Simulated scan of single mutants.
Amino acid sequence: MSATTPPRLGRPARPPRPALPGLVKGTWLVAERELAMRLRSKSFLISTAILLLAILASIIVGGILSSTSSAPKVAAVAGTASVVDGVQGLEVTEAASTDEAEALVRDGTVDAAVLPAETELGYELVALDEAPGTIVSLLSVAPPVQLLEPGDSDDGFLSYIIGIAFGVVFFMSAVTFGSTIAQSVVEEKQTRVVEILLSTISARELMAGKVVGNSILAFGQIALIAAMSVLGLSITGQSALLGLLGPAIAWFIVFFVFGFVLIAALYAATAALVSRQEEVASVTSPVTTLVMIPYFLVIFFNSNETIMAIMSYVPFSAPIGMPLRLFLGDAAWWEPLVSLAVLVATTLLIIGIGSRIYSNSLLRTGARVKLRDALKG
Rank of each mutant, 00 (worst) to 15 (best):
G237Y: 07
A127K: 00
L233H: 09
G86C: 05
L56C: 02
R33L: 07
S47I: 01
D111G: 07
I351Q: 07
S361A: 13
A96D: 15
R356Y: 08
I307C: 08
L9T: 11
V145I: 11
V77L: 00
A95T: 06
E91D: 14
I216Y: 00
K25D: 12
S97V: 06
S41N: 14
A54K: 03
L262M: 15
G167A: 15
A227M: 12
T27F: 00
M228T: 15
A49F: 02
R8S: 07
L51R: 06
L349S: 14
S69E: 12
E305W: 01
V280N: 12
S159H: 07
I201E: 03
A174V: 10
V110L: 07
E188A: 09
E91L: 11
P144G: 07
L349Y: 13
S137R: 14
R33H: 08
L297C: 14
L242I: 02
N302Q: 11
W251Y: 12
V274K: 06
R106F: 03
L56E: 05
A165V: 13
A127P: 00
T176F: 05
A54W: 05
L51D: 00
S361R: 10
I222W: 01
A96W: 00
K25Q: 14
G321F: 02
S282Y: 05
S70K: 13
F327E: 05
A332E: 11
G213Q: 01
L158G: 04
L20K: 14
S229L: 10
V145G: 00
D154K: 10
A101I: 07
K42P: 13
L53H: 06
P336Q: 05
S97N: 04
I350N: 12
Y123V: 00
T119F: 01
P21V: 08
V261E: 00
L233M: 15
S47D: 03
G243R: 00
E187A: 14
T306R: 09
V136A: 09
V87R: 09
G167K: 11
G178S: 09
G63A: 14
T347I: 01
I55W: 00
T48R: 05
K189C: 09
G213D: 02
T68E: 13
G89S: 07
P247W: 02
G79Q: 15
T365I: 11
A96P: 04
A268C: 06
V280F: 07
P336Y: 03
A19Y: 04
T270F: 14
L52M: 08
Y123H: 05
V84E: 03
K25T: 15
S66N: 12
P286L: 10
G213F: 04
S69G: 12
A269K: 12
A208N: 09
G352N: 11
G243C: 01
L217Q: 03
L45D: 01
R192M: 06
T306S: 08
V344C: 07
G246K: 11
V114F: 02
G86Q: 06
A240W: 01
V61T: 13
V92M: 06
P18M: 08
G26Y: 01
D155G: 14
P315D: 10
L53C: 10
L90P: 08
V338I: 14
R11Y: 07
V342H: 06
A113R: 09
I235L: 15
S41M: 09
A75Y: 02
N304G: 05
G329P: 13
I161S: 12
I201F: 05
A103M: 09
S215T: 15
V344Q: 11
G321C: 02
E120S: 10
G354W: 06
S140Y: 04
L52D: 08
Q190G: 11
V369R: 04
I299E: 03
F300D: 11
